[in-house]
């Protein structure tokens, strides 16, 4: 997930860095109100847990690689979006500066993709789904599963946009990379959703008081939550549907071609999004099919996981242990 230095252009790194700085500043301001004097120990400890939790590898079926927790939605579900965003930011800073995992110049882009989209966006989807499910404690699991998957896909789509803007090349297509990213992150998203749901289910069975209902925290207002969730869903949908972009002209272009108005059009160089060419899809039908199939399969798997994890938690809840889980 971490973007390395050299992949994005310095301009995009600076732009994403500025957005991330604004998001961090806003989160810090909000955090002082929400957590008061508990902000430092709770957020610092949560960041340390996510950092340690990322060291636990989850084996993948039939593959010689393993996945790990990303933690944006988990952190936001535990302490709210502001603390969640800051916790992921701290994790990314430590990973970059102490372990050289992720770039220094691209730290802003990493914070934007994983911290802001993961925690703010993930929390918005999480709180909306919980609200639709009646805000019961068990609704936290399907809500977290859906939010985790969507936030990973949205982060992948955002990376594609950043990468497309960084490259800005018309000489060759970037479709291969975009397809690879969406396929890879659709899989990562399923893993992240499953891990987040399982951990939340475990915590919910032992200390349900640690997972507040979004309504009781009052940290995000309804409109902001709706808009942010909409953005995350839009990015996730864009990630799935981008390779399906039609190569045929749209209605206006068609009329322009038929009436030869297009001969009067002026070709302007340097327009980054001219002709919706950031994803630059062309050729290779299989990648289109594979990407969309992955998206559809992913959606089905995530919804199945959301339902089954919710049911499993319901089955486990009567045997609540309130000792904080000191076994092992």
């Amino acid at each position: 997930m971490h973007i390395r230095d050299g992949i994005l252009s310095p301009e995009i790194c600076v732009a994403t860095g500025l957005i991330s700085l604004a998001a961090i500043g806003f989160s810090l301001r909000k955090l002082r109100v929400d957590l008061e004097d508990r902000a430092v120990p709770l957020t610092g400890m949560l960041a340390a847990v996510i950092f340690a939790g990322q060291m636990v590898n989850f084996p993948l079926i039939g593959l010689p690689v393993s996945g790990h927790l990303l933690g944006g939605v988990l952190a936001a579900a535990m302490l709210g979006p502001w603390a969640g965003c800051l916790a992921i930011t701290l994790v990314l800073v430590v990973q970059a500066v102490l372990f050289n995992d992720g770039g220094l110049l691209s730290l802003g882009a990493n914070i934007l993709n994983m911290g802001v989209v993961g925690a703010w966006g993930g929390y918005s989807v999480y709180s909306l789904v919980r609200k639709w499910c009646g805000n019961g404690p068990l609704s936290a699991i399907p809500a977290a599963v859906i939010a985790a998957w969507l936030s990973v896909l949205a982060a992948a789509a955002l990376f594609c946009v950043e990468f497309g803007l960084s490259t800005g090349s018309r000489e060759f297509s970037l479709r291969g990379i975009f397809t690879l990213m969406v396929l890879y992150h659709a899989l990562i998203g399923i893993g992240e959703a499953l891990i987040t749901g399982s951990i939340l289910g475990f915590v919910l069975a032992r200390r349900p008081d640690l997972i507040p209902t979004p309504a009781s925290t009052g940290v995000v207002n309804g409109t902001g939550r709706f808009v942010t969730a909409g953005l995350v869903v839009a990015f996730a949908v864009a990630a799935i549907l981008a390779p399906l972009k039609s190569d045929f002209p749209d209605g206006l272009d068609k009329v322009a071609q038929e009436t030869e108005i297009n001969t009067l059009s002026i070709e302007r160089d340097g327009l980054i999004l001219s002709g919706y060419e950031v994803p630059v899809p062309s050729g290779f039908w299989w990648s289109t099919a594979a990407t969309s199939l992955a998206g559809l399969l992913g959606t089905g798997i995530v919804f199945a996981m959301a339902v089954s994890l919710g049911r499993a938690a319901r089955w486990k809840l009567p045997t609540l242990a309130v000792d904080g889980g000191h076994a092992g």
Partner: peptide
Amino acid sequence: WTTNAQLIGLLLLRAMERA
């Protein structure tokens, strides 16, 4: 997968209590 998730969950619980 289950035990790994429980591992992180347990770590999370202990860490929040420690916090």
